[in-house]
Amino acid sequence: MTDTNSIGLPESSAAQLAEKLNQLLANYQTFYMNVRGYHWNVKGQEFFQLHVKFEEFYTDLLTKVDEVAERILTLGYTPVHAYSDYAKLSRIVEDKDVSDGQSCVKGILQGYQTIIELQRDVLALASDADDEGTADQAGQYIREQEKTIWMLNAYLGR
């Protein structure tokens, strides 16, 4: 009997990674729903600009939800898929009834900051486990989202 999974990672490392990735998945799902709500409910003079931008964000987040879930499956584990699990695992909280553009952008900024922090934890675990696949995925997401944070801060005049 071997103590490695089907892609050659130690089972203990794969289990830790899957647990951390499930936390990331829960945060992505909650963040996705927040951004979807911002898209639906934003009002004001910047409606047209923000409505389109928010759709771009939530479309990308939904892609990442799928990719994170598939990485968990690749590691040999099951992705969480119930809203009750997301509520327990997510550090991002539901943001209800927000329609002011500035508040929506601030919510997105905070969401990305949380996601990046979690992905850095995933990256550290993956690096320690010599899990190049998970490390590469997390690294790509971080690079992309750091630029998004810069642009959101610029939009807010920071």
Rank of each mutant, 00 (worst) to 15 (best):
Q113G: 02
D60I: 08
L89S: 00
Q23Y: 13
V105K: 03
G37W: 13
Y155N: 07
N22L: 09
T74I: 12
T134G: 03
Q23G: 04
E117H: 02
K88V: 06
A154R: 13
Y32P: 03
F47G: 04
E117F: 03
E19W: 06
I108A: 07
D136Q: 03
I7E: 05
A124P: 00
L61M: 02
V68C: 10
R91Y: 14
F54T: 06
L24N: 11
N5C: 14
Q23S: 05
Q110S: 06
V105C: 10
V80E: 01
G76K: 13
D121M: 05
K106M: 13
E117R: 02
M151T: 03
E67D: 15
L73H: 13
A82N: 09
L73I: 14
Q140N: 12
Q119D: 05
N153P: 02
Y58I: 05
R158E: 10
R143T: 01
I142F: 08
Q140Y: 10
T2K: 03
L125D: 00
A69P: 03
T74Y: 14
Y86K: 14
A18Y: 08
Q102M: 12
N22Q: 04
Q113A: 00
F54S: 03
V122Y: 07
N41K: 07
E46K: 15
N27L: 12
A126W: 12
L156H: 04
I72N: 06
S84V: 12
T78G: 03
I149S: 04
T114M: 10
F48P: 02
K43L: 12
A135Q: 12
Y112A: 00
L17T: 04
N27S: 13
Y32D: 06
A87N: 06
Y112Q: 01
L73K: 15
Y141Q: 09
E67K: 15
H51K: 00
G111N: 11
E19M: 01
K106T: 14
D131R: 15
Q23E: 14
E46I: 09
